[in-house]
């Protein structure tokens, strides 16, 4: 039997799963409720401030790297979950899941590094 190429997607799954376990609850809280619960002043997420963050090389990395890992983690697990729910078109599901992650990655590269 041939050795699988799954280590590529599984490696991203494991790395993204570990990172998101540590940071994602805080990230979701900050984005979703930081301002609405009065934890931060509204200008924390103002256009000027976020623009400055996205212009900074370290800021770009902090926005890109975790989002990249987490979306690839989620895409791989979602593919397996579709199979667990009885969807047998694994090729199509894989194309949709990894395709979405790839489109997201490209969009992020465009927004942070090109536009």
């Amino acid at each position: 039997m041939a050795r699988s190429n799954k280590p590529i997607v599984w490696g991203l799954f494991a790395a993204g799963g570990t990172l998101s376990a540590f940071i994602f609850p805080a990230v979701v809280f900050v984005i979703g409720f930081g301002v609405t619960l009065g934890f931060y002043s509204p200008d924390v997420f103002s256009y000027e401030r976020m623009q400055a963050l996205a212009a900074n090389p370290l800021g770009k990395l902090c926005l890109f790297a975790p989002t990249f890992l987490i979306i690839w983690h989620a895409a791989h697990r979602l593919r397996i979950t579709a199979h667990d729910f009885g969807i047998r078109a694994d090729g199509l599901v894989a194309a949709l899941c990894y395709g979405s992650a790839a489109v997201g990655t490209v969009a992020m590269i465009y927004a942070l590094f090109i536009a």
């Binding site: 979701v28 697990r77 979950t81 992650a101």
Partner: peptide, 23 residues
Amino acid sequence: EVTSAFLCAYSLLIIVGLVRLAQ
């Protein structure tokens, strides 16, 4: 396993935010 659907959707939301920021 279903947590992945939410993690996926929310990362997409963050990406949409970054694109909107660039716009």
